[in-house]
Amino acid sequence: MKEIVRMKKLIPNFNEMVIYHPYIAKKARGGQFVIVRADDTGERIPLSISDYNREEGTITIVFEEAGVSTRKLAMRKEGDVLPTVAGPLGTPSSIEKFGKVLLIGGCYGIGAIYSIEKELKEMENTVIVGIEARSSAFLFWREKHINCADAFYPLTRDGSEGLKGHVDAIIDRVIQDFGNIDRVFAIGCTLMMKKVAEKTKPLGIKTIVNLNPIMIDGTGMCGVCRVNVGGKMKFACVDGPDFDAHEVDWDVLIMRKKAYVDEEMTSLMMMECMKDF
């Protein structure tokens, strides 16, 4: 258990990691996450379950090399056993037959939306997928999405692949092609999710986002992951991470995510220095 069975560099700073953990693979559902520690002094970091394979007993995570913890994780090798892989955590996404559903993934969300996409498809929804990045070189998992979804819209900010512009352009185009949309799911960096929320609110399309505040235990024990949703304090690790995008207080979330920026820099500099010795 907790063994890395496959690892792949997707794009320069993104990795795909397949972990053998039959318990988690058996229970995993779209929208859930695992807590991982890369080594014995490592932080506990939350990573979405991007895919799962119940027969093989594995889960797949996709992660960006953001700071020390994710870089350490990227340095692990196939065959290594991770000290901590705990989950599946969080409340699964609520999946029903909605009709026409648009999934938007940016950054790690290009991976994370997949587990939800798969389940929406099983429920016979019309599944439309949009993924976005700076430019073509930062997109991945195209084939996986094309094989699963009914329609696929890549977008790049520089126009090097697919639609050009910002995430709004995906929504506009899908509405143009499909008429109404019954539901939107968005996962990615906080700003992207906020943008989606701002776009769909006046259109009256119910939108679910998978929030990514700082976490420690992931079981409701510390309260660091608290977010304001609909004017109430919620613990994202147990009450979420899925929430109604139009109820989220985005400013609080963005502010709280910056709590340790100085320390994260220190940590990263230490790691870079150590490399030279």
Partner: peptide, 28 residues
Amino acid sequence: HYNGIYSANEYLTRNNLMRGYEFPKSDT
């Protein structure tokens, strides 16, 4: 919700379980 406000559980967990007082030797 302001930054710098902790539950005791978070404060003590960061320090005891995650050994925050040894940061940056430990990562938390």
